[in-house]
């Protein structure tokens, strides 16, 4: 009745455990290694917010590894014992129920209470930065790009959020359409943008640098291509950048760029995009006043170069299917002029 034939049991008991250990070790080995690749890794924190969560993670990981080892230890013990020829089931096992209460209720309760207390401490600590923030950036989520507003909307840019390094910055989050989630893994945990609400978070980068962020709440067709960068700068550089951004757009000098401005203002472009200092003031798409000062276009997914600009203007759907921007019908001469104009919007 149900007795296993001997050969069926060969080499079975230990195998899952060995694989398990190998996997755990591989992971712990790989995690730090994986951090050097320009990855927006939560385990390569660059600010006090993410750093606090990272240390919580390592604590919980090691508790888990130890607990896992205990579970596997029991299983290995059971099967080593059970494979002995003289093994019999212990039908009394008076230790059984006390064991369940101790190992299955009391010990987990103690460990979990401790972890809960620590994570409450971290939650409270993360609610506000250590020192009060000196400035607020308003971030507005759009299908599928990020608008960043400084000085109460005096300065508007998109997808590249500059801020001073070494000090906390307050972030006010809203959305223009559906839910999005604002997330810069190396700096701070995520906060959703919710219609009808203003949410808050804060960012702080220890050092100047470029930190990739991405929308983390499913928001439709191009959820995958809704990235952005936080550019942390030394306070001086940041002030200089802010000063530049507060200027109206560069007036075109070259003939072709002047023609391009005409194309911009007389085609569908100006129906959606604003360029400060011109008649274009619409706010459907990203503000292009200082487009040429950005490194990427289309929400952090394309390098800001001539080729990409041409292609994105004439056929955005080929690069970002479903994007709200329609294709723009231009002759190749007009397109060249337009790109000339855009490229000098420093």
């Amino acid at each position: 009745m149900g007795r296993t034939r001997g050969r069926n049991r060969v080499a079975m008991p230990g195998a899952p455990n060995r694989i398990g250990f190998a996997v755990v070790l591989a992971v712990i080995g790989f995690l730090p290694a994986a951090c050097d690749e320009g990855s927006p890794s939560t385990l390569d924190s660059r600010g006090p917010g993410a750093a606090r969560i990272e240390s919580l993670w390592w604590l919980m990981l090691w508790i888990s590894v130890v607990a896992m080892a205990v579970v596997l230890g029991f299983l290995i013990f059971a099967f080593v014992k059970g494979r002995r020829a003289d093994a019999v089931a212990d039908h009394r096992a008076r230790w059984g129920e006390p064991f369940i209460v101790v190992a299955g209720v009391i010990i987990p309760a103690v460990i979990l209470t401790a972890v809960f207390a620590l994570s409450l401490r971290d939650m409270a600590a993360l609610a506000q930065p250590d020192e009060p923030a000196s400035m607020t950036i308003e971030i507005v989520g759009h299908d599928w790009w990020w608008e960043a507003r400084y000085d109460g909307g005096e300065i508007v840019t998109a997808n590249e959020i500059h801020m001073p390094a070494g000090e906390p910055v307050r972030v006010e989050l809203t959305t223009d359409d559906v839910l999005h989630s604002f997330w810069v893994p190396q700096l701070q945990a995520k906060t959703d943008t919710v219609p009808g609400r203003v949410n808050h978070t804060w960012l702080e980068a220890d050092k100047p640098g470029r930190y990739r962020g991405q929308c983390a709440e499913f928001c439709g067709l191009q959820h995958a291509k809704m990235a952005f960068f936080v550019v942390a700068q030394s306070p001086d550089d940041f002030d200089a950048w802010l000063e530049e951004q507060s200027q109206p757009a560069q007036q075109p000098v070259e003939a072709s760029a002047r023609a391009g401005q005409g194309v911009f203002l007389n085609s569908t472009c100006s129906g959606c995009h604003a360029i400060e200092g011109t008649a274009a003031t619409a706010d459907v798409g990203p503000d292009l006043t200082h487009l040429a000062s950005r490194d990427t276009i289309a929400a952090g997914v394309l390098d800001n170069n001539r080729n990409n600009l041409e292609q994105f203007v004439s056929d955005p759907q080929s690069l970002k299917p479903g994007a709200i921007m329609p294709p723009t019908q231009l002759s190749s001469q007009e397109l060249q002029a337009l790109v000339d104009y855009l490229e000098q919007l420093e």
């Binding site: 149900g2 079975m12 008991p13 099967f79 212990d90 096992a93 064991f99 209470t113």
Partner: peptide, 30 residues
């Protein structure tokens, strides 16, 4: 958060009941 930590406990209780039964028994690997 507290409730979410708490719900782990009854799950863990079952877990250790299974382990105890296997350890006390004579396990057969079918």
């Amino acid at each position: 958060s507290a409730a979410s930590f708490m719900i782990t406990i009854p799950s863990g209780t079952q877990f250790f009941a299974w382990l105890a039964t296997i350890v006390a028994g004579k396990p057969v690997l079918k």
